[in-house]
């Protein structure tokens, strides 16, 4: 793996008419890093993420994702990233196996590759017994893990996780984060938005967005020292109150 940053944003902005949703944000994410992307609702997180995933064109500034330019190479970006939305991103009326085959298919994996990956994934998540059942019948925690694994199916360099653990119990969340760490160990870059402050502590580095700007950026330890508080929760509250 080269030393090129996984994500590099410089003065990236997005305006909708007079409203500036994202205001000149700059940051760099290194390969294999778990980058937490925090902010209150409406702070511009989603818009920023949409620009980085090639869903939306920036109004100004520059950004490169996986080495590709967000303006000119959105197609290439889509090929090299994975995405898991806050809403559950598998199809409930398809079986576990069919979901895996579908996502493998739309990312253009070969049939042989899909077959191998399916077997491997089902073994790893110990889903052998339910491989032929509809995803609808699985417990939420299993679905979540399956969705994450599916997002990794085409071996993307970066995975964007949009509030991935909403509505999941703490134990499952813990297990989910173990999967995230494992992926990071294998060199995948993870870009995670979250509402849970305890999850923020798990990240390597965190940025906090307020009103379209990035007001704080650093490791959880650095941020807590900077704001002289005990937890990320307090860091977040101070920033959100505009202090």
């Amino acid at each position: 793996m080269n030393k090129e940053p996984a994500i590099q944003a410089e003065n990236l902005s997005k305006k909708f008419g007079d409203f500036t949703a994202v205001d000149q944000i700059s940051f760099t994410v290194q390969p294999g890093e778990i980058f937490g992307f925090l902010g209150a609702n409406g702070a511009g997180k989603t818009t920023a993420m949409r620009m980085l995933t090639g869903l939306s064109t920036p109004t100004a500034g520059d950004a490169r994702v996986a080495g590709y330019d967000v303006y000119r190479e959105a197609e290439q970006i889509k090929r090299h990233i994975g995405y898991m939305s806050q809403k559950f991103s598998l199809y409930e009326d398809l079986t576990v196996r069919e979901n895996i085959q579908f996502y493998g298919g739309i990312y253009g994996l070969s049939f042989r590759m899909i077959r191998e990956k399916t077997r491997e994934l089902i073994d790893r998540l110990q889903l052998g017994e339910v491989a032929r059942s509809l995803v609808r019948s699985l417990p939420l925690g299993w679905k979540q893990k399956l969705a994450f694994s599916v997002a990794l199916l085409h071996q993307p360099r970066i995975v964007f996780l949009d509030e991935p653990t909403g509505g999941v119990d703490p134990i499952t969340r813990r297990q989910f984060w173990e999967m995230i760490y494992q992926a990071a160990d294998e060199g995948v870059t993870l870009f995670v938005t979250t509402h849970y402050m305890d999850e923020a502590e798990y990240c390597d580095r965190i940025s906090v967005m307020v009103d379209g700007r990035i007001d704080a950026l650093g490791t959880p330890k650095e941020l807590k020292e900077q704001y002289q508080v005990e937890s990320m929760n307090e860091v977040f509250l101070q920033l959100a109150r505009g202090q």
Partner: peptide, 13 residues
Amino acid sequence: ELGTMEVLLASPL
């Protein structure tokens, strides 16, 4: 409604 549209749009399709 299910949120899968976002996932599809983020894919190379």
